[in-house]
Design a protein around this nucleic acid. Sequence first.
DNA 1: GGTTTTAGTACGTGACACCAATCAAATTAG
DNA 2: CTAATTTGATTGGTGTCACGTACTAAAACC
Lengths: 160, 160
Amino acid sequence: MTSPHDTPPPPTEDLGLVDGLAQLSFLVQSALAEIAGQYDLSVVQTRMLGILRDREPTMNQLGHHLGLDKSSITGLVDRAQRRGLVTRTPSTVDRRSFQVSITDAGRQLVEQVAAQFAERIERCVEPLPATDRKRLSRMATRIVTADAHDHGIDLRTDPR
Amino acid sequence: MTSPHDTPPPPTEDLGLVDGLAQLSFLVQSALAEIAGQYDLSVVQTRMLGILRDREPTMNQLGHHLGLDKSSITGLVDRAQRRGLVTRTPSTVDRRSFQVSITDAGRQLVEQVAAQFAERIERCVEPLPATDRKRLSRMATRIVTADAHDHGIDLRTDPR
DNA sequence: GGTTTTAGTACGTGACACCAATCAAATTAG
DNA sequence: CTAATTTGATTGGTGTCACGTACTAAAACC
């Protein structure tokens, strides 16, 4: 029925906002998963490293950033630490907690993933005219920050 | 430092296309995960049910739609079938394969999730003016369909 | 007919995610 | 200043999901 590699961009009917965004999110996520996978990283691991690029949170704070349970964090950090990507440093002020930091190796890794991911996304977005890309960027920012604002959360995987 | 529920929309600086889309995708995915979770569904299960709303693929085709290995599908369908959400019907033309169909219960479930998800997304998108929402919808569609075109894939979780 | 694909399952492994329970350190009460 | 509570993190158990490998049976090929 549907022909694969044929008609260039036939005036496709609109998917609607909800479905469009849903599918777009799947597209982005699977791109990230694929690229991260090339470096033996999962999406969550990558996200964690991304967060640690500019922060040194405690386990608890890290869990908060990722929206994960504390118990999930232990294993997550364990695995990353085993690979030498992050460090657990005992906090000086609270002898119960640790500060999680990214290592040079981890930083290098995540930088590579980020670069390749950026490349990929830029490519996906190519069909849009420059004006639209700008707009899209602004809109995404708007939505994300409004949401973070709602939840009193900080977010941002990759600031600056 | 950062005040949670204060300043309305202070001229937030742009996150950039890549980061904006990445975070937007996380936002959408976690919304979906949360809502699906209320019905004891995972994102993948929900996605599967969404696909089955308007298709009756074989296990293999289903795996193709989801981008998953055949071996992953068995368990996926098993669990859904155990819950009475889908059915495995032996194919009449190929005695090796089965057609996976959604049951009424499954359809009802996924419809509820979809409705609530739509509601949630609409809400997230509220800060944007109507014109932008239209634009966003078109852009998302454009990107997604261009990508599907590239990969010769069909996609669409929720056609029409 | 015999070889080779193909559809699906079975099994083992590992990453995640959660909950409940636990422990030590910190905080709050009284 | 003890006593009770809360908090940061780990452990253990369960379940989902994803993969690779190996295997069976049916198709398809020659």
